[in-house]
Computed example of a mutant assay.
Amino acid sequence: MTEIRERTLAGLSAGDSFRLTRTFTEQETLAFGQISRDQNPVHYSDDFAMAKNLNGKICHGLLVGGMITEVGGQIGWLASGMNFRFRRPVYFGDTITCEFTITEVEPGNRARAEATLSNQQGEIVIEAWLTGILPGDKEREIMAGLA
């Protein structure tokens, strides 16, 4: 059982924060392009990417932003909204750290969260704002049995 899941089973509240780190590869981008059908040449052609004033091919923004869903999946977050601001490109081999913080919990376990994803230089590459529903007692009980 992950540390994130263990913390979830104990109950979550505003201020709880989670951190993940992941290095992105060209192979992941190719696979994501097949699944999403996003064939933008900026992900496949260095020449095209450089014509866009980038240093070479970049990862799909939603592939990188998907780190948020890794946290959400571990806590059993049922998403109702996600807003992204893509601030910098992510290149193959970049190591990204996602900081996911629950900012508000309302009655009925409705919640808000913010996430900041930064590269290995500490530069923010994505900011995100999320809404959703946290698991209640019954859901956490079921999650405990899935371990």
Rank of each mutant, 00 (worst) to 15 (best):
E3G: 04
R7H: 07
A10P: 03
L12S: 05
L12F: 12
S13W: 07
G15T: 15
D16S: 13
S17P: 10
F18G: 04
F18M: 15
R19V: 06
L20Y: 06
T23N: 01
T23G: 01
T23W: 03
T25A: 12
E28Y: 03
T29S: 04
L30H: 04
A31S: 08
F32C: 08
Q34K: 12
S36A: 14
S36N: 15
Q39L: 15
Q39H: 12
N40C: 00
H43W: 06
Y44Q: 09
Y44I: 09
S45G: 01
D46G: 00
D47I: 14
F48W: 15
A49V: 06
K52F: 08
K52T: 10
L54G: 08
N55M: 10
I58P: 02
G61Y: 02
L63M: 10
V64E: 00
G66I: 00
M67Q: 01
I68Q: 02
I68P: 02
I68E: 02
T69K: 02
E70R: 13
G73F: 14
Q74W: 10
Q74M: 08
G76W: 01
A79P: 03
A79I: 03
A79K: 05
A79R: 00
S80Y: 05
G81N: 04
G81E: 08
R85E: 14
R85I: 07
F86M: 12
F86R: 11
F86A: 02
R87C: 14
R88L: 09
V90W: 09
G93T: 15
D94Y: 10
D94Q: 07
C98F: 00
C98H: 00
E99G: 11
F100C: 06
E104S: 10
E104F: 06
E104G: 04
E106V: 11
E106H: 15
G108Q: 09
N109L: 14
R110Y: 11
A111Q: 12
A113W: 02
E114R: 13
A115D: 09
S118R: 06
S118L: 07
S118I: 04
Q121Y: 12
G122P: 10
E127Y: 11
E127G: 02
A128I: 14
A128Y: 12
W129R: 12
W129T: 09
W129A: 09
I133M: 09
I133G: 00
P135Q: 08
P135A: 11
K138F: 01
K138Y: 09
R140C: 14
I142E: 12
M143Q: 07
L146F: 11
A147Y: 08
A147M: 05
